[in-house]
């Protein structure tokens, strides 16, 4: 087996464990707005794939810059785009119809 194989194997097992955790947590009952916390194991899994399988740490500096920029603009996109749906307030009003 090649020298990197144990590291890859550990990452794979960890990914499957996190998948199990994510699946198990999703079976619990949460308030609708807390359910996005189910994304936390998914983010950890994405980080493991990026670090171990995609080897971002071994990439040239400019490549790491591109990866960081991609994540940064994704956060800007999701952050600014979410402002309206996450902060909108609905006021109950009564409409009087003229007789």
């Amino acid at each position: 087996m090649p020298p990197r194989f144990p590291r890859l194997l550990i990452a794979w097992v960890l990914l499957l464990v996190l998948l199990g955790v994510e699946f198990g947590v999703a079976m619990l009952s949460f308030a609708p707005w807390l359910r996005v916390l189910i994304l936390l194991p998914a983010m950890a899994m994405a980080a493991i794939v990026g670090i171990v399988f995609m080897e971002i740490g071994r990439a040239p500096v400019v490549a790491r810059g591109f990866a960081t920029a991609g994540l940064f603009w994704l956060l800007v996109l999701l952050g600014l785009g979410s402002m309206d749906p996450l902060t909108r307030t609905y006021y109950h009003t009564t409409v009087e119809h003229p007789e």
Binding site: V62, A63, A67, G70, W73, L74, L78, L86
Partner: peptide, 28 residues
């Protein structure tokens, strides 16, 4: 080799934003 890897990361950064629009759609 470094140029090829950087080029692929740049392409993947555009893909992140491509799918980012999809994820924003889900949020909204």
């Amino acid at each position: 080799a470094g140029t090829a890897l950087a080029g692929m990361w740049l392409f993947l950064a555009t893909e992140v934003l491509f799918f980012g629009g999809l994820f924003l759609t889900w949020i909204y």
